[in-house]
């Protein structure tokens, strides 16, 4: 069944519609929600929605509970290659929990929260942006980490990044739901404007694995589930461009590098000159790598996870 949770008038002959697919079987009250499409240029979640529903449809008898899939929280954005909410120029993941008496967007955010509230688990799928490629990973606020990490481990990911609490992030969907005691895990994987089927299939395997542990799924699950590294056991290093230019990568993401390894060169095509050799500051795992070639000073190039901190190394 497809249910419309928000319907608001656009100026000419169209409604802004936010819809979810409900798949229900058995007697259990358990409910898992898969949401994506908050950022209209992040599409990896589209394949996950398709593949999850396809597999469920084929084996519905094994399901005991409700799976709800929200493929496009920002339908105007997804359908128009726009990251934010078109015409409002707003990042949709900075407007939660919304306001029942507020304007269109705040009201929409409020309705989304009301609809998701109370689920046993929410998976909020993101796909980086158009510049950076991400290894399949969960992002967890340090304040919620104790509760969420055991679930994040079931999702067949490579990495769990526990990040600091920042006031500005309180306006995200995930934070809002977690505060309302609806456990929500943010998954980041792949890259904007593309589908990475391998990652999509892995996450779908992970979701079935999670449902099995939640006793909602008695069907087959993948027999190998990846054991993610935990950011708390090391340190995350950010590599930003020191000069503006064009990037020529030397490594892909998801690889282990040694301290001093060349990650990429920033070059000046006009002069045929190398402006900066970007070297890894540590031994570690490249879990984010820039693929978009043009950089300004400060543009993020890579994020590296090192299981040893620099202090330990020098000590």
């Amino acid at each position: 069944m497809i249910k419309t949770i928000v319907s608001e008038g656009l100026p000419v002959d169209e409604q802004l519609l936010i819809r979810k697919k409900i798949i229900k079987n058995g007697d259990s009250d358990k409910r898992i929600c898969i949401v994506t499409g908050t950022h209209g240029d992040e599409l990896e979640g589209q394949y996950v929605c398709f593949e999850l529903i396809r597999r469920l449809n084929e084996n519905l008898d094994f399901l005991d509970g409700t799976v709800e899939v929200y493929p496009a929280l920002n339908p105007l954005g997804v359908d128009s290659v726009t990251r934010g909410i078109p015409t409002f120029d707003l990042d949709m993941n900075r407007i939660f929990p919304g306001d029942p008496n507020g304007h269109l967007i705040e009201h929409t955010a409020y309705e989304i929260i009301q609809d998701l509230k109370g689920a046993d688990m929410v998976i909020d799928i993101h796909a980086s942006n158009i510049f950076l490629r991400e290894m399949p990973q969960a992002r967890v606020n340090v304040k919620m980490s104790r509760k969420l990490i055991p679930y994040a481990r079931m999702l067949n990911l490579d990495f769990i990044w526990i990040h600091d609490a920042a006031t500005v992030l309180e306006a995200t969907l995930a934070h809002t739901l977690n505060v309302l005691k609806t456990p929500t895990i943010v998954v980041e994987m792949g890259i904007g404007m593309r589908l990475t089927l391998e990652y999509g299939n892995r996450l779908v395997d992970g979701i079935f694995n999670l449902m099995k542990k939640m006793k909602m799924w008695s069907g087959p699950v993948a027999n190998k589930i990846s054991k993610p590294k935990l950011s708390a056991t090391g340190e995350v290093f950010f590599m930003n461009a020191e000069v503006s230019g064009i990037i020529i990568p030397s490594v892909t993401h998801s690889v282990d590098v040694k301290k001093g390894d060349l990650l990429c060169q920033i070059v000046d095509p006009f002069e045929g000159k190398v402006l900066q050799n970007v070297l890894s500051p540590v031994d570690g795992l490249v879990f984010t790598m820039r693929t978009y070639p043009v950089v300004y000073e400060g543009s993020l190039i890579a994020r590296i996870f090192s299981e040893k901190t620099i202090n330990e190394e020098t000590a």
Binding site: E8, G9, L10, P11, V12, L16, T87, H103, L104, H107
Partner: peptide, 8 residues
């Protein structure tokens, strides 16, 4: 010149 529903 155009207005959405539920807008200020």
């Amino acid at each position: 010149p155009l207005i959405h529903q539920n807008t200020v």
